[in-house]
Design a protein around this nucleic acid. Structure first.
Lengths: 216, 216
DNA sequence: ACTTATAAGCAGGCTTGCTTGTTTGTATTA
DNA sequence: TAATACAAACAAGCAAGCCTGCTTATAAGT
């Protein structure tokens, strides 16, 4: 009855070792990100991650021998997801008229979403944990640079050529990070950050020709 | 020689009970803040705090029966220190010409100092810990409002009366928080945030008369 | 092609150390 | 003398990592 020549359905199906490893690694890392989002870094225990992933502690420890290794891998995973999400959304950006506002809305959605919170946990924890810090730093750099170059690109050649474009971009990113931070304790309120105002200021700043101005 | 009729020096000296309690509470809370700054919230254990404070675990547990109580008290302590530091610095602010820049420098020094990092740990931890969140929220509100009213006051009556002053202040605070966040992983680099540029933008924004403007 | 040997992935129990909170006893103040 | 502040030993729980044994896949040998 159940003896078909090819054990295609009722058996767990034959997978190569690499596939098996990749599968459990993916489940573990996804679970780690979920736990991080739900319970924060102080609530991240290897046991909970294994439970959440539906993976035995043995498997967990086989793939990631120490908690440190797991966390480092989680940093990589979260950073990749974040960057990828940003890039995907950037692809769907129409070349409309109010491009700046759209660009800022895009960046804001990336910075105020759950991935920001997950990354924030690792970010803050990396301040005091040297190993974690070393793992987070390169991704932080690459993320900032990637976002910056993406914004340069999306601003378009005219605006990108303005003398203070880079300062404007950094200001926008700082402001958004700060606005996102203000949402950490109150996810319910939708918009403390006025994107129109910010965009307006950027426009004015980019209208300048002289590279520096003294404050009144 | 050492037998004076009043046991003033070689004996621990007579203190009232309230003084004793206050002394150990102060030491414990100060130690908690230090541990928080050094090791983050995930490294905050009652044992370490007691060791750091030079206080027995018995004394610790007498004043703060649970870790929860200790953390809540630490939130209060850190928030008070922060607000007080801000107010003290505000008092020494000269009524010079480039007042805005000075105000922003002041706010920036308060937001980029160690107290910000300590508060950030509690802030981020409060996202996932309900009790901590309830403890942090009121202080967050009062801090934001206090800082805002302080800035209104320090901006002076002319600027404070401008239609978009509140938006400008919120933008400044968001930007500074974001800039401070960028320093978390790299305390070495001094100024990613261009205070002159920010001040310049605020000046322009406050020059507006119409309450709203559409972006180009 | 089939069997067998070796390795890789996996499951779960176990140990050690740490953290928290209780309890019991002592010193200091009222 | 009663209450408050403090000290320290103790117990329960948990987290991290280790270990033994089992299943599945790959390689070698015939």
């Amino acid at each position: 009855m159940t003896s078909s020549p090819l054990p295609s359905q009722d058996r767990p199906a034959r997978r190569t070792q690499a596939e098996r490893s990749a599968a459990t690694q993916a489940r573990v890392l996804e679970a780690a990100a979920e736990v991080l989002l739900e319970s924060g870094y102080s609530g991240l225990t290897t046991t909970r991650v294994a439970q959440r992933a539906g993976v035995s502690r043995g498997a967990q420890l086989h793939q990631y021998p120490t908690k440190e290794a797991l966390v480092v891998a989680a940093v990589d995973h979260v950073a990749r997801c974040w960057g990828e999400a940003l890039r995907v959304q950037a692809g769907t950006l129409p070349a409309g008229d109010d491009r700046l506002l759209r660009v800022h809305e895009l960046l804001w959605s990336a910075l105020s979403g759950p991935l920001f919170l997950t990354a924030l946990e690792l970010w803050v924890a990396g301040r005091t944990d040297p190993v974690l810090r070393e793992a987070v730093l390169p991704f932080e750099r690459s993320f900032v640079r990637g976002a910056r170059s993406l914004m340069f690109e999306m601003y378009g050649p005219e605006l990108a050529a303005r003398p203070r474009c880079r300062e404007a971009i950094d200001l926008v990113m700082h402001t958004m990070r700060g606005g996102a931070l203000a949402l950490v304790l109150r996810p319910e309120r939708p918009a403390l950050l006025d994107l129109r105002l910010l965009t307006d200021l950027v426009v004015r700043l980019l209208e300048d020709e002289q590279p520096a101005a003294q404050s009144a």
